[in-house]
Amino acid sequence: MIVRIMGEGQVRLDDSHLTELNRLDSELLAELDKGDAAAFRATLVSLLDAVRGLGEPLPDDFLEPSDLILPSPDATLEQVRAMLRDDGLIPG
């Protein structure tokens, strides 16, 4: 799958990593529900670090649509809420 981190670029990520990413996504949703900005920020950074660490960066001139779009590390609670689907940022 191709994942875009807003403001950074795209990475190719194997679907086998979805379980770990969904765990972090669930934590992020819980923190959003509580309005816990500090915990939200820490989990968002962990989620994005996991994508960067597990994925392979794609060149800037790579022109394929993203399967998944994640917020930038400095996104606010409100910005992330606006991006949510029924099952969070990450499907599954």
Score class of each variant (00 low, 15 high):
43 T>C: 11
44 L>I: 01
44 L>Q: 01
45 V>I: 14
45 V>K: 14
45 V>F: 10
45 V>D: 06
46 S>W: 01
46 S>P: 01
46 S>Y: 02
46 S>D: 13
46 S>H: 11
47 L>Y: 13
47 L>I: 01
47 L>Q: 02
47 L>E: 12
48 L>I: 14
48 L>W: 15
49 D>C: 06
49 D>G: 06
49 D>M: 02
49 D>T: 13
49 D>E: 04
50 A>K: 12
50 A>N: 00
51 V>E: 15
52 R>T: 06
52 R>I: 14
52 R>H: 04
52 R>S: 13
52 R>M: 15
53 G>V: 10
53 G>Q: 03
53 G>A: 02
53 G>W: 07
53 G>M: 01
55 G>K: 07
55 G>Y: 03
55 G>W: 03
55 G>I: 05
55 G>N: 08
56 E>W: 12
57 P>Q: 02
58 L>K: 03
58 L>I: 07
58 L>E: 03
58 L>P: 03
58 L>C: 01
59 P>F: 06
60 D>N: 10
60 D>T: 07
60 D>H: 09
60 D>F: 03
61 D>I: 09
62 F>C: 15
62 F>L: 13
62 F>V: 05
63 L>A: 14
63 L>K: 10
63 L>D: 08
63 L>H: 07
64 E>F: 00
64 E>N: 02
64 E>C: 00
64 E>L: 10
65 P>V: 12
65 P>E: 13
65 P>D: 12
67 D>L: 10
67 D>V: 07
67 D>H: 13
67 D>E: 12
67 D>Y: 05
69 I>V: 15
69 I>D: 09
70 L>H: 07
70 L>A: 08
70 L>D: 06
71 P>Y: 00
71 P>I: 00
72 S>F: 05
72 S>P: 13
72 S>E: 12
73 P>K: 10
73 P>M: 03
74 D>F: 14
74 D>M: 13
74 D>H: 15
74 D>L: 14
75 A>K: 07
76 T>G: 09
76 T>F: 04
76 T>C: 00
77 L>T: 08
77 L>N: 07
78 E>Q: 08
78 E>K: 14
78 E>G: 04
79 Q>W: 08
79 Q>G: 11
79 Q>E: 15
80 V>E: 03
80 V>P: 09
80 V>Q: 05
80 V>H: 05
81 R>F: 04
82 A>R: 09
83 M>P: 00
83 M>Y: 00
84 L>H: 12
84 L>F: 04
84 L>W: 06
84 L>N: 08
85 R>V: 11
85 R>T: 14
85 R>Y: 05
85 R>P: 02
85 R>C: 05
86 D>E: 12
86 D>L: 14
